[in-house]
């Protein structure tokens, strides 16, 4: 008979003597550490993603105009791939200039801005 490799229990014959049912018993501290890191990482990642999202949104709104952005209570005819692609391209061209006192928002730093 070949004994199988196991990650935890290999018998349920004496349930009164069984405590932990889950595999890899004894490694819980490591699992928790990984979980905590993932949780904190999620917050950091979300805040970064949100900052980028709003940077893009402001470029887009400036490009299409607030009137259009607010049309039908916001959003109805605004989001199309072409506008977003152009806005992103604008941002990509427009790497932050450390000497620029107004890097974004007033439109003066972008080519073609009125």
């Amino acid at each position: 008979m070949i004994t199988a490799v196991g990650t935890g229990l290999d018998s349920f014959s004496n349930p009164a003597d069984i405590t932990v049912l889950s595999p890899f018993d004894g490694w819980e501290g490591l699992f928790v550490a990984v979980g905590v890191l993932l949780w904190i990482g999620w917050h950091v990642s979300q805040i970064r993603a949100e900052n980028k999202e709003y940077d893009e949104a402001l470029v887009l709104y400036e490009r299409v105009g607030m009137e259009r952005a607010m049309h039908f209570g916001g959003g109805t005819h605004l989001v199309n791939d072409e506008d977003i692609d152009v806005a992103r391209a604008d941002m990509a061209e427009d790497k932050p200039d450390p000497t620029d006192p107004a890097p974004r928002g007033d439109g003066s730093h972008r080519k073609g801005s009125p």
Binding site: M66, A69, M70, G75, L78
Partner: peptide
């Protein structure tokens, strides 16, 4: 501007 345009926009 994002608030005015809407957070879904």
């Amino acid at each position: 501007a994002a608030e005015l345009a809407g957070l879904d926009t």
